[in-house]
C-alpha cells in the first residue's frame, strides 16, 4: 500500500483546535510549582485543611521517584485517600506538567470521573528549578512557591516560574532572620520581575491556614465558578494563519 494520494481527512483543513475549557464547565485546576523543599506540599495540606469542608477537592502529586508527597498528604488526613493521585515523572518533573502533560491529564480525568462533584484539583509539581511552569493545558492558574532559604537574590534571578506564574509565594518568612534574607529586597525585586501580578509572603509556621494564599485561591474558585475567569486562548492552527508563519 502506498499512500501517495491524499487520505480523507488530510486534505480538508477543518481542524478545530481543542477549545479552551469554559470556566465553570469542569473543576478548576490550580498548579503549585517551585523548587525542592520550598513548602509546596505543606501549602497543599494547609489549603486542603481550610477548604475541604466548603469545596469538593482532589490533589495530584508529581513526585520524582517516590510517592512521598502523596503519602504525606494521605497520612496528614487532610483528604480522603481516593482524592489523592500520584503521577510518575520519568526523571523529568517539569516535562510532566509542561511538555507532556498526559500523565497528569489522565490523573485529573480519573479523579473527576470518580468524584463528579469536584470543584478544585490542586496539582503539585515535583521540586524543580526556576524555569518550571505549568502548561496552560493542565493548570488554569498556577502559583510558584519559593522560600527565603535560598537567599534574597532568588526573585531577581527571574525564570518563567518567578515571572510568569499567576501568584508568586515567598514562603518561610519566619526563618528570614536566620538566613539573613532581606524581605524588602525580595519584595522590590519580585515587583520588578513581575509587574502587576501578585506576590504573597507566607510563613506556614506562623499562619498554618496560609491565609493570604487561601484568599487568592478563593478568588480563583469564585471567578471560575461564576464563569468570569478569562480562558487562555487555544492555539490557532497554522492552516488558518497562513502568511503569518514568518513571524
Amino acid at each position: 500500500m502506498h499512500l501517495d494520494h491524499t487520505p480523507g481527512n488530510g486534505g480538508t483543513h477543518t481542524h478545530t483546535p481543542p477549545a479552551p475549557a469554559v470556566p465553570g464547565s469542569r473543576p478548576l485546576r490550580i498548579g503549585i510549582g517551585g523548587p525542592v523543599g520550598s513548602g509546596k506540599t505543606a501549602l497543599v495540606a494547609a489549603l486542603c485543611r481550610v477548604l475541604a469542608d466548603r469545596f469538593s477537592l482532589a490533589v495530584v502529586t508529581n513526585d520524582i521517584y517516590t510517592t512521598e508527597d502523596a503519602d504525606f498528604l494521605r497520612a496528614a488526613g487532610v483528604l480522603a485517600a481516593d482524592r489523592i493521585a500520584a503521577v510518575q515523572t520519568g526523571c523529568c518533573p517539569h516535562t510532566a506538567v509542561r511538555d507532556d502533560i498526559s500523565g497528569n491529564l489522565d490523573a485529573v480525568e480519573d479523579l473527576a470521573a470518580a468524584h463528579p462533584d469536584l470543584d478544585l484539583v490542586i496539582i503539585e509539581s515535583g521540586g524543580d528549578n526556576l524555569t518550571m511552569t505549568f502548561s496552560r493545558g493542565l493548570a488554569d492558574v498556577q502559583m510558584f512557591v519559593i522560600d527565603v532559604s535560598g537567599g534574597d537574590k532568588v526573585p531577581r534571578k527571574g525564570g518563567p516560574g518567578v515571572t510568569r506564574s499567576d501568584l508568586l509565594v515567598i514562603n518561610k518568612t519566619d526563618i528570614a532572620p536566620q538566613i539573613g534574607a532581606d524581605l524588602a529586597v525580595m519584595d522590590r525585586d519580585a515587583a520588578r520581575m513581575r509587574p502587576g501580578t501578585p506576590v504573597a509572603f507566607l510563613s506556614l509556621r506562623e499562619s498554618p491556614g496560609a491565609d493570604v494564599v487561601t484568599a487568592w485561591v478563593l478568588d480563583q474558585i469564585t471567578a471560575w465558578q461564576a464563569g468570569t475567569a478569562v480562558p487562555v486562548a487555544a492555539p490557532t492552527p497554522l492552516s488558518s494563519t497562513a502568511g503569518s508563519a514568518a513571524g
Partner: peptide, 11 residues
Amino acid sequence: SRLPAGGYAHS
C-alpha cells in the same frame, strides 16, 4: 520523542 503522549515516563 517529544510527542506529548506520555512515553517519557516509561523505560
